[in-house]
């Protein structure tokens, strides 16, 4: 069966992110000069504008800043899953990431809860970074 949901458009700046995800790793850009971490990928450090930008493995840990739940179907490919959650995660290194919390009921997804990254293969090229509630 073909994968019907939207896929990321992979470009020269974000390709390392998706390559790492395929290997089961969350990697983010960081600045060799000032130590800043950021997402989405960018050609220079958004904090100090240095071009000494490198990709590093992030902890994969974060906290839920907020959550919402899609009931309306904007894209037919999500029809079977609705209502589904979308959460904004504050990663330990600082950047924000919007994704889904898997393996948890809506009622159990709490603002401030600790989460960790998990990896779900979508296609041969794309593995999505999702999150699960951390063990308490």
């Amino acid at each position: 069966m073909t994968y019907a949901k939207p896929l990321p458009s992979i470009d020269r700046w974000n390709k390392p992110f998706w390559d790492a995800a395929r290997q089961g790793e969350l990697q983010l850009q960081t600045c060799e000069d000032c130590g800043h971490w950021w997402f989405p990928p960018a050609p220079v450090c958004p904090s100090c504008l240095s071009t000494r930008v490198t990709w590093k493995r992030a902890s994969g840990r974060g906290k839920i800043w907020s959550r919402c739940r899609f009931h309306h179907i904007y894209d037919k490919a999500f029809a079977d899953e609705a209502p589904y959650n979308v959460c904004m995660i504050e990663l330990e290194e600082g950047p924000l990431f919007i994704s889904n919390v898997v393996g948890a009921a809506w009622e159990d997804i709490g603002i401030g809860d600790a989460v960790e990254a998990c990896f779900e293969k979508a296609t041969e090229e794309v593995t999505l970074v999702r999150f699960k509630l951390a063990e308490k």
Binding site: K5, P6, L7, P8, S9, P40, W65, S66, R67, C68, R69, F70, H72, Y74, D75, F78, E81, Y84, V86, M88, I98, S99, N100, A122, V126, L128, R130
Partner: peptide
């Protein structure tokens, strides 16, 4: 809503959803 964008693979694709999170 729908279509592409940075977070579209996660089903996050509408301005209303940003306000829902807030």
């Amino acid at each position: 809503g729908g279509g592409g964008g940075l977070w579209a693979p996660f089903g996050m694709s509408s301005p209303g959803a940003e306000h829902a999170l807030l």
